[in-house]
Amino acid sequence: MSIIQIIFLLLSVMAVGSALMMITSKNPVNSVLWLIVVFFAISGHYILLNAQFLAIVNIIVYAGAIMVLFLFVVMLMNLNAETEPIKNRRLQLIGVTSGGALMLIIISAVSKIDVEQLVQINAGDSGLIKVLGMNLFKNYVLPFEISSVLFLSAMIGAVVIGKKEEIDIKK
């Protein structure tokens, strides 16, 4: 077992375990924190793949900005384990079963592929900021600009939705 594989396995176990903890913990605050762990694990994978830019962006945007936003909302609403409504046991069972079945079926389908394709690990410059930047600002400059408009509209939308309604809803 090479060091790479060991790191891969460690990161994978960390990601999957944290994800399972996320969906099983009663307290939403814990869920948020476990999800941050998942994101860190995934960023680790990115580094392993030598996709440095995405690893950093993932940490900054996801683990940093977005998850803080989640945490902020959870705390704002003062949610805790008691507020979690009890779900129908049978439905939960069905959910887990069907999800597991879906996973199994796709994995079995993937394992049918007999070609061996390797992934470039810890090498290659395709994930470097320089290459990505050139590509982004040369070939993808229009989507990039449009995404700024998307952000603007999302911001306005969030403000409009979150604004306290002046008009009484019952009216």
């Binding site: 439905l91 069905i94 959910g95 069907s98 999800g99 879906l102 079926i105 796709i106």
Partner: peptide
């Protein structure tokens, strides 16, 4: 429930 049905549908299709 809708999501569950969707997943089951996907399952069947797969």
């Amino acid at each position: 429930a809708y999501v569950l049905l969707m997943v089951i549908g996907m399952l069947i299709l797969f």
